[in-house]
Amino acid sequence: MAERMPAGTGSGQPVVLLEGVTRDYGRDVVTRVLKGVDLRLAAGEFTALVGPSGSGKSTLLNLVGLLDRATSGRVCLEGVDTAGLDDTALTRLRGRSIGFVFQFHHLLPAFTALENVMLPGIARDGRPSDALRRKAEEMLDRMGMSDRLRYKPGQLSGGQQQRVAIARALCLGPRLILADEPTGNLDTAAGAQVFELLRRINREERAAFLVVTHDQHIADRCDRVVELVDGSIVSEHAPPPA
C-alpha cells in the first residue's frame, strides 16, 4: 500500500489532512458550526477530540469520516482530495479506509454478532466469503467475543455490543478509526475495558484513531488531545505525563 509515501522531513503522509474546513447548517439562518479547522492525523496516532457539548465534535467526525461534505476547505484521506469524488466513490473509499464506532453501538439488530462484523465486507465484495468469515471470527475473538458469535445484539450487554461494534469497525483493516464517545454509554469498568481494546488495536494495527470523548481520564491516556470550542480548534497538546 502507498499510504506511507516518504515526504520531506521523514514524517509519513498523513492519513487525514484537513485544511480550513468549514461547515454551515441552515438555509435561511446560516449557522457556521465549523470555522476553519486544520487537522492532521498520522498513521498509528491516537488522538482525542474534546470540547463542550455543541462545539462541533460530531460534525467534524462526520466530515473526516466522509459521511458529510465540507462547506469549504479541503478534506484529504490518504492523499486523496475527497472534493472531487462522487457519492459512490466516496462510499467505496469510506468502506475501504474508515471504521466507525458510535456512542450507541449501532449494530443491526436483525443480524447476529458475526454477521454484523461481516456486513461491511459483504457489502464491499458483493457476497460473503470464507476468508471474510475467518477474519470476522478472528476480530471477535480478539474482542473476547468468540463465545457470542451467533448472538443477536439484543442478547448482548452494552459493553459486549460495543466490542462487537469495534470488531466490525476493524474487520476490513481500515487506516482510520473514528469513534464518537465510544464509552459514553458504558459504566466505568466496561468503558475502561473498551478503551483498552481500542488502544491495543491501535498499537497492533498502526491505524490512526480519532476518538471523541468527554472523559478526562480517557483523554489523558491518548497520544494527543485536540480541543474544539465553538467550531474552532483552540488547543492541540500531548496529555500531561501520567
Binding site: G65, L67, D87, T88, T91, R92, R94, G95, R96, F100, F102, H106, L108, P109, L119, P120, A123, R124, R168, L172
Partner: peptide, 16 residues
Amino acid sequence: NREIGILRAFGTTRGQ
C-alpha cells in the same frame, strides 16, 4: 433510517 445510515457508513452504496 438509522440502520440504513450505518450500512452507508460502512461502505454500502446508494445503489446497493
